[in-house]
Computed example of a mutant assay.
Amino acid sequence: MPQSRSQRLGAIVLLVASIVGFAIALYAYFTPLTGVNGTLGALVAILANIALAVMALILPALKGNAARNVWRVLILLGLAGTFFAALLLHQWWICVAMVVGLIGLILDLALATRTARPAHT
């Protein structure tokens, strides 16, 4: 059964947050006087946001609760690692984007459990 738009909302929020984080990290990497331009840390933040975007695209396509739960844990680890890297880089807007991504992950989990429960009548 195909997923409705509300069931994919969490993955969409996660995707948008990772794209915004990617754009901010890209700006910080290439713009002089950001304090992190050309650094390995900013490059890692760029790559981590790309990985999170790909994971967000794959999340709605996964079948089975076990696979989705493992994927969610990997996404959570990616969000936490990127958040920590952004803290070390003093890139606060990337931190905000990762918190929004976490909200998207929580939405995905909440909407999946809500639709999986049978209706009590």
Rank of each mutant, 00 (worst) to 15 (best):
G104D: 12
V100A: 12
G104K: 12
V99H: 02
I106L: 11
V99E: 03
V99G: 02
D108S: 12
L111Q: 10
W93K: 00
A116N: 11
I106V: 15
A112W: 09
G104P: 09
A97M: 04
W93Q: 13
I106T: 15
A119S: 13
T115K: 11
Q91L: 15
L107W: 06
L102R: 00
A112M: 08
V100Y: 02
H90D: 14
H90C: 04
W92Q: 03
L107R: 05
A112F: 08
H90A: 13
C95V: 13
I106A: 15
H90W: 05
A119Y: 06
I103E: 01
M98K: 01
I106R: 12
H90G: 05
V100P: 01
T113A: 00
P118R: 10
D108A: 07
P118I: 08
D108V: 08
L109C: 07
W93H: 06
L107Q: 02
T115W: 11
A110Q: 10
G101L: 03
H90Q: 11
A110L: 13
R114V: 03
T115D: 13
A97D: 02
C95A: 09
V99P: 00
I94M: 03
P118C: 05
L107T: 04
L105V: 13
A119N: 10
W93M: 08
L111E: 08
L109Q: 12
R117H: 03
A112K: 07
A97W: 06
A97K: 00
L105F: 09
P118W: 02
V99C: 04
R114F: 05
A97T: 02
A119H: 09
T113Y: 07
L111N: 07
V99S: 01
L107H: 00
V99Q: 04
R114H: 07
W92V: 11
T113R: 14
G104Y: 12
L102G: 12
A119D: 12
V96P: 02
W93P: 00
A112G: 08
L109P: 00
I94Y: 05
R114I: 04
A116F: 04
W92C: 00
G101Q: 01
A110V: 14
T113W: 05
H90T: 12
Q91C: 11
P118V: 14
P118H: 09
A110R: 13
D108C: 06
L107M: 15
A110S: 05
R114W: 07
M98D: 07
I103Q: 01
A116P: 01
A119Q: 14
M98F: 02
L105H: 10
C95T: 06
L107I: 11
H120Q: 14
L102V: 08
G104R: 05
T115I: 14
T113I: 11
